[in-house]
Structure formats: structure tokens, C-alpha cells
């Protein structure tokens, strides 16, 4: 899933400082699963903003809503009738949400309430880790399901580097060296010789280096 963190309250308060009435809109997709932009978090943000503005003597009317997803135009259409009733709309979805909303309703202002951080999963309650860099050409079959593109600080395809220290990366004692894990797994499975093959240089054009990306599925496209 896409993992995000909520922005500091002061940053969000600054975005809406000239507003009297706003809509905080959450998303039932990834941000609900990572407890950042679902129903609960929408309520918490709305209440926090109202408290801050009450203290400032400039009360803010905040309505709350959670859309099925903000990355599908059909769900965004639900707010069509009411979207212009507000001075601004604060989206708690990943970075896709406010952009889809902004494209659908050019007359309204949309502000992001979260920082979209990475593609990952929950390794335990309350802790999420990056697992995928979305590079567009998956290479984890070379590494038995472990991705050095996302999980090696240098994205080395032929590692480890000299910064691997007792299973940790030199950048932080909290970051595992994924190459340490890859090598250990190969040893455990008796396939260390796999690593004698040099993985060819990766074509990064499928990643962001090729510019904004688009996926087209002819069999799903309707109306031409």
C-alpha cells in the first residue's frame, strides 16, 4: 500500500488560515489501512483544527467526509454538489487524492494534509517499512523476493557495499542492510553461486527517469 504521515498541524493550519469553512475529506484506501487518512483520522484532524481556531478566536467550520477512494473519478463525483460550499478542501489521501480532486473541480482549492512517503507494509502494529520503489521493472526474482532497489540505500543490484556492518546499513543502525539479508538467504538455500552472475545495469527509463508514467490497458478502456 501507499504509506503516508500526517503533516504537522501548524502546516495544515497555515494552509487554511484564511478559510471560514472547510471540508476535510479522507480516503478508505491505503491511507485508512496505514491509519493516516481514514474516518478516525479525519475526525481527529477536524477536531484539532476546530480547537486551534477556537483558541485563536477565529472559529472554523469543518465538515468531514470519507470517500471510497480518491484515485477514482467515480467516487470523487460524490462531492460534486457540495464541493463549492467550502472555502477550501483538505484531502487526507495520498498525493494522488488532492490532484484528482483538483482536476475534477478546477474552481476549488485543495490542500494535502499528509506527506506521502513510500510503498510498503506494516511490519508490526504502528510500524511501516518501505518495500517497493515503484521503479517500473521488477528485479526481485534475482534476489529471492527481496528488493535492493527499494531497500538498499544505494539501490545496488550487485551488493553489498563496504557500508554493510553486522547486518545494518552504514546510514543508520535502524536500517537493515538488505544485501546482508540477500546473501544470508542465498547461503541458507545453498545457492550463493547465484550471486556470481552480475546483474546487468538497470534501465531506469521505466522509473521516474523516463518522466511521468502512464499505464494503458486496452482491454479495459471503454468508449474508444
Amino acid at each position: 500500500m501507499i504509506v503516508a504521515d500526517r503533516k504537522p498541524l501548524n502546516e495544515i493550519l497555515d494552509m487554511v488560515k484564511r478559510c471560514n469553512r472547510i471540508l476535510v475529506v479522507g480516503c478508505k484506501g491505503c491511507v485508512t489501512v496505514c491509519n493516516v487518512g481514514g474516518l478516525k483520522e479525519v475526525q481527529i484532524l477536524a477536531t484539532s483544527l476546530k480547537i486551534a481556531r477556537k483558541i485563536g478566536g477565529f472559529p472554523l467550520v469543518v465538515d468531514e467526509m470519507v470517500l471510497e477512494r480518491q484515485c477514482d473519478t467515480e467516487y470523487i463525483a460524490i462531492i460534486k454538489e457540495t464541493v463549492t460550499d467550502y472555502d477550501a478542501v483538505v484531502s487526507m489521501a495520498c498525493g494522488v487524492g488532492p490532484q484528482f480532486l483538483s482536476e475534477a473541480y478546477p474552481e476549488q482549492k485543495f490542500y494535502p494534509a499528509v506527506n506521502t512517503t513510500f510503498f510498503g507494509g506494516a511490519v508490526s502494529h504502528g510500524i511501516w517499512e518501505e518495500r517497493c520503489a515503484g521503479c517500473g521493472t521488477c528485479v526481485i526474482h534475482y534476489f529471492d523476493g527481496l528488493c535492493p532497489v527499494a531497500r538498499c540505500s544505494k539501490s545496488l543490484l550487485n551488493g553489498p557495499c563496504g557500508g554493510s556492518d553486522h547486518g545494518k546499513c552504514e546510514i543508520s543502525r535502524e536500517v537493515d542492510c538488505i544485501w546482508d539479508k540477500i546473501v544470508r538467504k542465498k547461503v541458507e538455500q545453498g545457492r550463493l553461486d547465484d550471486l556470481l552472475d552480475v546483474v546487468p545495469a538497470k534501465n531506469w527509463q521505466s522509473a521516474r527517469d523516463g518522466g511521468p508514467r502512464r499505464s494503458r490497458r486496452e482491454e479495459l478502456i471503454q468508449n474508444g
Binding site: 478516525k40 475526525q43 481527529i44 477536531t47 476546530k50 480547537i51
Partner: peptide, 11 residues
């Protein structure tokens, strides 16, 4: 008791 209950009381 959730976070929102405590915040609502303050609000």
C-alpha cells in the same frame, strides 16, 4: 477511549 473522545471533550 479513543483519541477523538479526549479531543472532543477539549473542543
Amino acid at each position: 477511549v479513543d483519541i477523538i473522545h479526549l479531543l472532543k471533550a477539549i473542543e
